[in-house]
Computed example of a mutant assay.
Amino acid sequence: MRLFATLVILGFRRWSTYRLATAAGAFTNTVFGLIKASITVGAIGAAGGTLAGYDALAGATYAWVVQALVAPVNVFQWNELALRIRDGDIAVDLARPLDPQFAYLAGFLGRAIHQFIPRGAPPLLAGALVTGLALPTTPLPYLLGLVSVVLGVSVSFASWWLVNLAAFWLIELRGLLTLHIVGMSVLSGLVIPVHWFPDRLATLAALTPFPSILQAPVDVITGRAEGTAALGVLAVQAAWLAGVLLLGRLVFARGARKLVVQGG
């Protein structure tokens, strides 16, 4: 655990050097939050004032909280492992006395911790000023929500790790990475809440780990899932995390056995 904490800190320090990129990202997230909140409130109004349990304020809150979490969970891109496999640098990772999946997960969490406040706070502040936020007034949802966010970030890493491993067998991954981004964006609840999905699409989403990345943390933080329901959400996230990480370990071991690096 001490080594893991050290790697998390190093990941935080690595990403803290990109101050201008962080500021630009915060501005972008806030602008898109305003657009999404407006569209969400308009859709709820067109539906008669409520939609799948969301009123206008709850819908706007959902949009702002999603925008606050989209950077920490990293929906849009992570191909660091694929690039190292393609370039042969993965051989260095394999030579180190450290499990690569363990090390990359720590770095991914360090990045998320850095992104959490500078990329997450501005959209929430804008939401509080523009539309208002319907958030719980007791501390328990936030404590459980913090656990849910950590699980969501970890599930996101596990899914990205698995997709990146295709580089052991494929030369070009841009198409696969794009499909993963589209699937994660739609099925995680980034575009609209998963609770708004028609039955077949909701069933499809439930068969993937993607709702555990965004929809689950938002449900816990906003108090939509409370008490035993919140614990059930955390249990589902933990189950997906264990399953996808294990699958990632198995695929990585298979890929490492066939890896050929020029010169070694």
Rank of each mutant, 00 (worst) to 15 (best):
L187F: 14
A95V: 07
G110D: 06
T22H: 02
P122N: 11
I181P: 00
V73G: 00
S148P: 08
W64N: 01
L105D: 13
I44P: 00
A253N: 11
T137L: 09
L259H: 06
L143F: 15
T131Y: 13
T17M: 07
G243K: 10
V218S: 04
A166D: 12
A205H: 07
W240V: 09
R119V: 06
D93N: 13
S16Y: 03
A58G: 08
T17R: 15
P97K: 01
L176V: 14
V236R: 05
V251L: 14
I35Q: 01
A5S: 13
G120E: 08
V191P: 01
D199Y: 01
A112L: 02
S159L: 10
L83W: 11
A126K: 04
W240T: 04
I192E: 01
A60K: 02
A235M: 10
G145I: 09
N164R: 03
A126T: 08
A134R: 13
V150N: 00
G11S: 12
G263R: 10
I213A: 05
I213E: 13
I213H: 06
A225E: 02
L83V: 09
L81V: 15
G223N: 02
F252Y: 15
S156M: 07
L165T: 02
L10I: 09
P193Q: 04
G183Y: 04
I213N: 07
L94F: 15
I181M: 12
L57K: 05
R86C: 03
A242D: 04
V130W: 14
L105Q: 10
P211N: 07
R249F: 12
Q262L: 14
G48Q: 03
L176C: 04
D87I: 01
G223Y: 02
V155G: 00
Q237I: 04
R2L: 15
G53N: 10
Q67N: 09
F116V: 03
I181H: 05
L241V: 05
G33R: 00
D89F: 07
V130P: 09
P118C: 06
